[in-house]
Write a protein that binds this DNA or RNA. Sequence first.
DNA 1: ACGCCGACCGTCCGA
DNA 2: CGGTCGGCGT
Length: 754
Amino acid sequence: MSIYDTLNPEQKRAVLHDKGPLLILAGAGSGKTRVLTHRIAYLIEHRDVNPWNILAVTFTNKAAREMKERVDQIVGYGSENIWVSTFHSTCVRILRRFIDRIGYERSFSIYDSDDSRTLMREVCKYLEIDTKRIPEKTILGAISKAKDELISPEEFEKSVGSDYMLKKQAEAYKEYQKRLKASNALDFDDLIVKTVELFMNDKEALTTYQNRFRYIMVDEYQDTNTAQFRLIHLLASGVNEDGQKEYNLCVVGDDDQSIYKFRGANIQNILNFEKTFAGTNVIKLEQNYRSSQNILEAANEVIANNIGRKEKALWTDNGKGDPVGYTLFESDFDEADSITSEIKRTVENNEASYNDFAILYRTNAQSRIFEEKLILRNIPYRIIGSVNFYARKEIKDILAYLKTIDNGLDNIAVKRIINVPRRGIGLTTIDRVNDYALNNDMSFYEALTRSNQIPGLERASAKITSFVSMIEGLRTQLNQENYDLTELIDDILDATGYLRDLETEGSDEAEDRIANIDELVNKLVTYAEGSEEAPTLSGFLEEVALVSDIDNLDESTDSIVLMTLHSAKGLEFPYVYMCGMEEGVFPSYMSIYADNPQEEIEEERRLCYVGITRAMKRLSLSAAKHRMLRGETSYNKPSRFIHEIPRYLLKINMPSDKNSKNSFASQNTSTASGYHHSQKNYKPFATNEPKNFAGNNIGTLSYDVGDNVKHIKFGIGTVTDIIMGGKDYEVTVDFPGYGTKKLIASFAKLTKVD
DNA sequence: ACGCCGACCGTCCGA
DNA sequence: CGGTCGGCGT
């Protein structure tokens, strides 16, 4: 019996497909990853395809990693040569090799949205654009949209006509792009755009990759935008030994799960695939292996309200299962209270463990109230996507030092750290240097190196000189043999006094920051040890730039996970709670009152479909009669999506108070003064909770105070304290030779040693 | 040069 | 409600 015998007939057909374009329309939970991985295995083992010639593109690093692992398991050899990565990392890898052919340096920086915003602010100031009339966000949005469609600044300008606002935006786009170039930097969208540009302008680079990638697979194809489509199309248009175009392109997607139109996804890519690639083989995977019948039927009923979709009939062999639960609560407060207590009860009855549960919501802001309840109840949890580790100030500061050393042209990075920590270089000085740089057509950093030639600097010049020599010193060291990246970061922290300043400050906040910096050091060590090629500074920075929160989701930690419906795509959980099912929340206010509500509501409905189909065993929906929305109480009707589920599939629960005897909410929610009062009562209660617990909050730590533990960088040390800090343990460890370190348990991955 | 505070703002989703 | 930015005071 071969591994292919475990596939159903459609899956098997997809796996055994040989050459030419293939479109797999894979319904939710229909085993598409299984098909992709088996197909890769089949190509290698039965079609003699060289693993080297296979490219698989996904949207998240997590999906890429999982696919790689699964391929590893079924392919005997050579799997390390398969190129499995995200669109963005694929492009970075290509550009690192060839970008000099389109006029950038190969050590380019990658700007995150924060950096882009900073840059746009400068642009607006320079062009005297009144950001009250045209906010930076609007301009950046327009630029991003243009880039998704491969529209250059020049084309954009031509298309805007005489509209004043748009003309200004066109000007800003041009200037923004000019400055990115001067900084030798690319923003997220540029990664794709510039790769396409490279391929259009450099036949040799294109042929190199066309020859390499003879078999291309794309996951979540419904979410590709025009630029990404173009990229794939270019790569797949290579010719074989006989001079024939084979288009060995296999894309997997589900139009019903297309939820990224707002960031440029072009649904036409999947709907027109058959037209674009003549001779396409289309295979539909309609058997769902994930959810119970009731859940699946609810999903089918909801999505049936969308018009203009590819008709699909998802079915399952699984049993009927529980009905879909629905509860209408009085307030968001009750909703969070009840859901968290129900989960806790289920776990304590040994019916499930915490990592079987997901709480899904439309917007990140909705996580807060759950977080408060979870802390109060001592339930371990993880929130995906609220504050990105790499967006924290101290992390961005240190990264800016690394970027400055790596790419001195990166003006945004240099400006960020020129006076951090404070070294008495103020705004007037920076403006003067900046003017000088602009007038003399040089980078900000280069202007710094000539500060003695800049008029009007006087005393500041000496301070600048010492900053420059510090950077130069670090740069020289990096070029020396036997000097690794870990030493560099230590030297930065030391030379700048960044750590010392925080240590002197001594506040809780400062300690958090130190812990975060330690964490960054960990990540650097992990990168250096784990990277396939020789670790480089650029390599680390790029890994950092391209990692998203969801990539770090570790299913093995025993905690509830909270995230947006968008983040949940591609995941599955035995128990799913979809909360905030209210008009104006979900579907969102913006979609209801959009210019084209029909279209936008349909996207919301697809999002709802995605949410429902995440659930395996049990799905619980909930709404609240009133909730706090941006500071004020608002009253919304239950979501239309609730009404789209037939009554016979639902079990409508009454918000009970049967557990209120032990509930924190009971005395609060029933007070006549209502919500605001309860908030007041609640808050001090929460903060008065003891911060020190011995209990098992975040899963279970394998060590305790007094144990010896091993750390990736600091070696073996003794645990002196374990503190519950917000949503994670903060572990204090005494490392001989390194001193006492505060570490975040979930990051530090300490292991107990005897 | 820098820090604090108050007004104001803008509200979704994300690599 | 919470974060951000600009003004003002030191």
